[in-house]
Amino acid sequence: MDLVLACAEWSGEESDAFPTRRFLERLHQRNSYLIDSHYPLRDALIRDTGRTAQERWSFLRALREQRQVWPPRSWDGRPAAEHLG
């Protein structure tokens, strides 16, 4: 199962956009917080993304680099309608 960031007006045309670095950093911080706080997701996060903070950040960066689309698109959190204006 994958969790993705998306706005309520997300269109199929933009579904290949990848969250910007800002969101990856926030996701990395959230994952580190959950791991350090020993929440139930801790073991799954470690298993899926890495044991150390460096391994987890490398995992997220690799996902972004593997996502090859043309033209390259990033999602910055604004509703889809704002991208068109």
Rank of each mutant, 00 (worst) to 15 (best):
P40I: 04
S74G: 09
L34A: 10
L24D: 05
L41E: 15
R56I: 04
Q66L: 09
E14R: 13
F18I: 08
S15G: 07
W75F: 15
D16C: 05
Q66F: 07
R67M: 08
L27Y: 00
D43N: 12
S15A: 11
R67G: 01
R42I: 07
V4F: 06
T20M: 03
T20Q: 03
Y39P: 07
R78Y: 01
Q29K: 07
Y39S: 15
T49R: 10
L63T: 02
N31A: 14
W70L: 03
Y39M: 09
L24K: 05
L63W: 07
E82A: 14
R61T: 11
P72K: 09
V69L: 01
T49D: 03
R22K: 15
Q54G: 00
R64L: 06
D36E: 13
A8V: 03
D43M: 08
A80K: 00
V69T: 09
A53G: 12
Q29M: 04
W10D: 11
L5P: 05
E14D: 15
S37R: 11
D2Y: 02
L24T: 07
R42A: 14
A53H: 10
S74R: 09
W10V: 05
R30G: 07
L41P: 12
Y33V: 02
R61I: 08
L34K: 04
Q68H: 10
D48Q: 07
L5T: 07
R22W: 10
A17D: 02
P72M: 07
D36S: 13
M1C: 05
R67K: 06
A6R: 02
R21P: 00
G77Q: 04
F23Y: 12
I35Q: 00
H83V: 08
T49A: 12
D43Q: 12
N31M: 15
P71N: 00
E13P: 05
M1K: 10
D2K: 12
E55P: 05
G77R: 06
R47C: 05
R42S: 14
A53C: 05
I46R: 01
G50R: 01
T49F: 05
I35A: 03
R51D: 14
E82V: 11
Q66M: 11
R78K: 13
L27I: 12
F59H: 15
S15E: 08
D16S: 09
L84F: 11
L34C: 08
S37Y: 13
C7F: 02
D2H: 10
W10A: 08
A44P: 00
P40E: 05
R56K: 08
R51M: 08
A17V: 03
G50A: 02
L60F: 04
L45E: 08
H83P: 06
R47V: 00
A81C: 04
C7W: 03
L3V: 15
E25H: 08
T20I: 13
R61M: 14
S32K: 02
R51S: 15
S11T: 15
R30Y: 05
G85Y: 04
A44W: 07
A62D: 13
